[in-house]
Design a protein around this nucleic acid. Sequence first.
DNA 1: AATATTAAGTGTATTATTTACATTTATAAA
DNA 2: TTTATAAATGTAAATAATACACTTAATATT
Lengths: 232, 232
Amino acid sequence: MVSFVSNYQDQTQLLVAVDCIIFGFDNDEVKILLIKRNFEPEKGKWSLMGGFLQPNETATNAANRVLETLTGLQDVYLEQVHTYTDPNRDPVERTVSITYYALIKIEDHNEELSKQHSAHWFSLKETPELIFDHQQMVNHAINRLRYKTSVQPIGFELLPEKFTMRQLQKLYETILNEEIDKRNFAKKINQMDVLIKLEEKDMSSSKKGSFLFQFDKDKYENMAKEGFSFKL
Amino acid sequence: MVSFVSNYQDQTQLLVAVDCIIFGFDNDEVKILLIKRNFEPEKGKWSLMGGFLQPNETATNAANRVLETLTGLQDVYLEQVHTYTDPNRDPVERTVSITYYALIKIEDHNEELSKQHSAHWFSLKETPELIFDHQQMVNHAINRLRYKTSVQPIGFELLPEKFTMRQLQKLYETILNEEIDKRNFAKKINQMDVLIKLEEKDMSSSKKGSFLFQFDKDKYENMAKEGFSFKL
DNA sequence: AATATTAAGTGTATTATTTACATTTATAAA
DNA sequence: TTTATAAATGTAAATAATACACTTAATATT
């Protein structure tokens, strides 16, 4: 019998960080929140917001902390994506990075805080050059988001409480990167029966105005318990 | 402007490990390879095979190393699943664990090596009690495998080079945990046109014998380049 | 040599889902 | 009052998924 666990004492310890891919939606396109490095190395380049894992902190805790630091938001939708371990990925010192993507409602975030961190929202199609392996992280997160939004109703995390059918459709179109027929879209969404149609209309987009909807989270969760699955 | 990156020097370093969920298929059910702990804590309980991340090693390197140590196999299909960071997940010392699942052909592995590690194959339905958070890791890996096998032709990694249509079907039935009609299954697989039907028959399962097939990896990859996607 | 046994191999009809597509309507602005 | 604009809505056609049963090839038995 060979002992398969080496002595814990002899083992190398490493820095462990989390990096957050923060997604927002501005009614027209999906954006990510990046911060500008004002120190070397890679000063002037843009990067994801990150932070080191602290003693007694889970990676999820750390991601929440990092997120709150930059946006002021708590209780944000977060999902772990992938862990990057290339020994040379960070030129300063070897760091393992665990990535999370966050879905926030752009209008909710604290602009003062993000200004303090020289943060800026970028359209996914116009991201600037990123440090290290951050572009890869972003790509991976987008793929995961694409998959997840199509099988779970997490898209609503990116929209205001009340939204129009067109906003919702536009959101899915941008995330999935495909055009959708509006009648077919409405049909599919309505069939799933997870939206509450309000009396209220949004008058900003047209003369006729368009009805506002809300996501019925309780109803969805009850249906999910009964085996229903969201599928777009 | 607030400096968002703390000094690297001040930061806590942690042990980082990989744990491998090793899947195999024995023509009847999906199994995982577990090792029995012969030391405290949790002596006598079963666990995943794991190992610490070494200097200059990526997590994928580490997973490959761990896998070769236990099975003698190289170039095995490996996919990172999730990273576990609860500060108390390992009672001996705080350890971050990155999990990978591996798909191997059971008959290819080195039994001598696995015997040396007190390893044993368990049916997924009859896994023994596992240490720490290893059961959670297994569950997560199964879910990922379920998803991945249905959108990429990785199931073949679990089968011998030559296999019958029924073996392939049985494999999918066990992974996806649902019965499939054999005519519909064959139709779907044949439509995708990624199998080579051999002249050869396997005579072990019936008097009539059943034709053997091979996965045409090159053809699949060319088709994938052209936008084709495997979907079961 | 004939017969029995067993899993392999195969096709069609039905149902459900997805896609394509155009007109009317409510409201504000002119 | 008219005009302009996006919102709202339904149906037919095409495609995909499902349900379902008999014939065949080879071995084993008599």
